[in-house]
Design a protein around this nucleic acid. Structure first.
Length: 868
RNA sequence: GGGCGCUUAGCUCAGCUGGUUAGAGCAGCUCGCUUACAACGAGCAGGUCGGGGGUUCGAGUCCCUCAGCGCCCACCA
């Protein structure tokens, strides 16, 4: 951390004739590009680096103000640390792999991927999306994904440059690039080698529309309408029936048991006995398990394979068989009653009933089975409608099913305690966000499923051998690390020929791609070139900052912590800065699905980047923030004020634009103002240390207005005169401006850069954050003086306002009463007060009976003032 | 069901480890073209800090409780 003992050197002043915000953005964006102002210094040692694990936006999504909001908050921190002398590693990435891109490509071009089709090198998509999607090969599909993301990325880059993100564009990455794939595939192979990754056949959350497995992290509960149906299960011993309630009667053929709570006296006598499923006559046991809730429904439930996650637990813990009826396409599959999987006592009757369901969707099957049950009198009473929470894939449209499938997993369950410890070690901003991480880790119910049955993603880098019968071998064939990235669907494993693909005795590529988080969890490795440039990586890892939104704590943050733990046995970063959401003016969360997204470009056109940044940075981390155009107006005004005030203070009537005298002795008022400013520097700096950029801005801004309204008004006359105090006033003005412009630089990069350029060479963003050591301490100067003088000036203004006269009106006499200590302060600003207030006579009267200053102003006769 | 956050002027928000008459901006009202700024400036008015209880000499600021809103998590038949 460097500290500067003096203000940056200035040069002769060159002021524009008139000031404006217009045109500044193009000018300075170009300047920063040309001068590589935000370039990361790769030679810096780790302790001199501040590294940021920038969130790579999903480029297939829409651009919206949320991006501006989040990234501006990050940028303020980046600019601050750069000014603190750090080499700031601020990369930018685009997250372009995964389902969102596939979905966008499907809609944009009107295509769908059919992996069974051959590659068509001459394919070009229809000009307008046809009504029925065109089926294309996987490779054609992936090419379209690449094509579309490329143009999406251009518009993102335009926006990000426009909002003055101080990223180093040479550090740009994309999550589908060969480099990222290499990092991702190597990361996977190493997890496999270390035993952290494994393949396993198990019940898996499955989205029937996307036809892919889904991880716990991608789940979302949605309240939907359902109904309890009361079904009768005849007891096997013929002694009556057992009634259960279910919301999913269509799963009856997959029922493998009934379950009740072990303490439930109503059902205790049944434990260990069997019942028969209605319609299908499959004998199933009645069992006891703690998770059965006596309060729910009839207190006894049917266990199906699989209706929900509780079924999975019961199935596992009670060692039940599997009777799958719903296929991966969400339709009822063919099953054979009477065989060992579906041991019906009346196979013909069961088959007949099941024929009514076969091929149907879940909804259709449900409707039909209710009819069948009613016809047979097996439903008791009317369905009881309820609203209940059902699990959905967060991007999906139909409830998830659970199917048994073979997937790749990362062992996260054994890590839970270590992850919780990591969460405590990480510095969260704001601190309460840690609770979200902890409740997620504590709620983990299985290892992390990282395989997806999709196309546009990083492929699993391996193949499986096929034996003479064409059966798949369990031990995969792995590539050399040096050959990565590979695509097992087109690359051939060592020792094989392409002709052996899918042939008995040959090999088959793993058809799946990795979960997008399996790659995004490696952003520190991707951005830091872990594989290709280990020396760079050593200089930036563990990173200093992970900025991100709170809704992806359970995905991006969590998965990154897992991967760093497994690969490096460390935290991936020291700090996590969690930003809030943007709310529309009605206080609702902005999101695509709500249709209330606001496009940022209009706002940027209307108010300018600095103004929009002002709005974004006046919000604290973690706080959901209303999109408030008024706040942008204020920011715009502030930026204009900064230009005007700087121009005014630098327009040296009388000294020909020369530098001020840095050694001039400071008048008490000037020293007092600077002492106040020193306090602001201190407060702002400590606010940044706490990641409280909004508090810093608040203090900086408040001081700036006092500076303009009171201090500048007070010293105006003196600073432009040739008298004794002129040198002091100019020195103070220059120093105060230099400090304030630099304080504002992270927030209002354009206005700060523009004003700085009037009297300095080089970018303000490459100078130092102000230090209190730049501000001279004058013995005997009082920090209260400025305030006392401002109070008197304010009272004089008040008197003029009440009298409805111009501020220029002359005041014949001003009486100031107050305790001696305060009068002494006022006395030190006597001349400036008379000048600023047009006061002819300023009289101070000691009065220790009051604690504050009492001011009486006696206006001069209007005629004399000449103002009216 | 568990947890977190929020609830301060009409609006959007500050109020750090409890301590002078609760702050800012916007909107409102009243003035003023003052030679940096009328896309401006000066000034006024406006809250007793969601309800209740408690700790304390003293609470918006700590504790308990209730309510509303938002969010996170959860094995929701």
């Amino acid at each position: 951390m460097q500290s500067l003992d003096h203000a940056p050197a200035s040069r002769p002043i060159a002021l524009p004739d008139k000031v404006a915000l217009e045109g500044l953005e193009e000018k300075w964006i170009a300047y920063w590009d040309e001068n590589a102002t935000h370039h990361f210094d790769r030679t810096a040692e780790r302790e001199d680096v501040y590294s940021i694990d920038t969130p790579p936006p999903t480029v297939s999504g829409s651009l919206h103000v949320g991006h501006v909001f989040n990234f501006t908050q990050i940028d303020v921190l980046a600019r601050y640390w750069r000014m603190r002398g750090k080499a700031v590693f601020f990369p930018i990435g685009w997250d372009d792999n995964g389902l969102p891109t596939e979905r966008r490509v499907q809609n944009f071009f009107g295509v769908r991927c059919d992996p069974s089709l051959p590659y068509d090198p001459g394919f070009s998509p229809p000009a307008t999306p046809p009504e029925r999607p065109v089926s294309i090969s996987r490779r054609n599909f992936v090419e379209l994904c690449g094509q579309l993301t490329e143009s999406d990325e251009e518009s993102f880059e335009d926006l990000f440059r426009r909002i003055a993100l101080s990223v180093d564009w040479s550090l740009k990455y994309t999550t589908i690039s060969p480099e990222a794939q290499r990092v991702s595939q190597r990361g996977f192979l190493r997890m496999l080698e270390a035993g952290h990754a494994y393949r396993h056949e198990a019940p898996t959350l499955w989205d029937v529309d996307y036809s892919s497995a889904i991880a716990q992290a991608e789940l979302e509960d949605r309240e939907i309408a359902g109904a309890y149906h009361r079904l009768q299960f005849p007891r096997a011993d013929g002694a009556g029936v057992v009634e259960i309630e279910t919301t999913r009667p269509e799963l009856l053929p997959s029922c493998v048991a009934l379950v009740a709570h072990p303490d439930d006296a109503r059902y205790q006598p049944l434990f260990g006995t069997n019942v028969r499923t209605p319609l299908f006559d499959v004998e199933v046991p009645v069992l006891a398990h703690e998770l059965a809730d006596p309060e729910k429904g009839s207190g006894i439930a049917m266990i199906c394979t699989f209706g929900d996650l509780t079924d999975v637990i019961w199935w596992r813990e009670l060692s039940l068989p599997v009777r799958t009826v719903i296929g991966r396409n969400g339709r009822f599959e063919t099953v054979n009653f009477g065989d060992s999987a579906f041991p019906s006592a009346s196979p013909e009757k069961a088959t007949e009933a099941y024929a009514e369901l076969e091929g149907k969707t879940v909804r259709q099957a449900q409707r039909r089975i209710i009819e069948l049950l009613s016809e047979s009198g097996l439903i008791v009473g009317e369905p009881r409608p309820i609203m209940h929470a059902v699990k959905f894939y967060e991007r999906g449209e139909r409830p998830l099913e659970i199917v048994s499938s073979s997937q790749w997993y990362v062992r996260t369950m054994p890590l839970r305690d270590e992850l919780l410890a990591a969460g405590r070690e990480l510095k969260w901003h704001p601190a309460f966000m840690r609770a979200r991480f902890e409740s997620w880790v504590e709620g983990l119910n299985g290892d992390w499923n990282i395989s997806r049955q999709r196309y546009f993603g990083v492929p699993f880098p391996l193949w499986y051998p096929l034996d003479e019968n064409g059966d798949i071998g369990l031990v995969p064939i792995l590539p050399e690390e040096s050959s990565l990235p590979i695509d097992p669907s087109s690359d051939v494993p060592g020792g094989y020929e392409e002709s052996q693909r899918n042939q008995p005795g040959g090999f088959v590529g793993d058809p799946d791609v990795m979960d997008t988080w399996a790659t995004s969890s490696l952003t520190p490795e991707i951005a830091g070139r872990y594989v290709d440039d280990p020396r760079l990586f050593a200089r930036i890892f563990p990173m200093d900052l992970r900025p991100q939104a709170h809704e992806i704590i359970r995905t991006w943050l969590f998965s990154t912590v897992v991967r760093a733990k497994l690969a490096h046995d460390s935290l991936p970063w020291t700090n996590a800065a969690i930003s809030g959401w943007i709310l529309d003016p009605d206080g609702k969360k902005m999101s695509k699905s709500k249709g209330n997204l606001v496009v940022p470009n209009d706002l940027l056109d209307k108010y300018g980047t600095d103004a929009v940044r002002y709005w974004a940075t006046s919000a604290r981390l973690g706080v959901d923030t209303v999109l408030d155009e008024q706040q942008m107006s204020i920011g715009r005004r502030l930026a204009i004020k900064l230009l005007n005030a700087t121009k005014f203070a630098l327009s040296r009537v009388g000294d020909g634009g020369e530098e001020s005298d840095n050694a001039a002795e400071l008048a008490p008022l000037d020293a007092s103002m600077l002492a106040c400013l020193a306090e602001v520097v201190e407060v702002a700096t400590s606010a940044f240390a706490d990641y409280e950029h909004a508090r810093a801005l608040d203090r900086i801004e408040a001081f700036f207005w006092t500076f303009c309204d009171d201090y500048v008004e007070l010293v105006k006359t003196r600073a432009y005169g040739t008298g004794d105090g002129a040198a002091s006033a100019r020195r103070a003005l220059d120093l105060a401006l230099s400090v304030q412009l630099r304080l504002f630089a992270p927030y209002l990069p354009f206005a700060a850069e523009e004003t700085w350029s009037w009297w300095h060479d080089g970018s303000i963003h490459a100078t130092s954050w102000p230090s209190t050591s730049e501000i001279p301490e004058q013995s005997g100067s009082s920090i209260e003086l400025l305030d006392a003088a401002a109070t008197v000036l304010g009272e004089v203004r008040h008197a003029k306002t009440i009298a409805k006269v111009s501020m220029r009106a002359k005041v014949a006499r001003v009486l100031v009463r107050g305790p001696n200590s305060m009068l002494e302060l006022v006395a030190q600003a006597h001349g400036d007060l008379c000048d600023a207030g047009s006061i002819e006579e300023l009289e101070l009267i000691a009065d220790d009976t009051i604690e504050k200053l009492a001011v009486e102003a006696e206006l001069a006769p209007i005629d004399d003032a000449g103002a009216k």
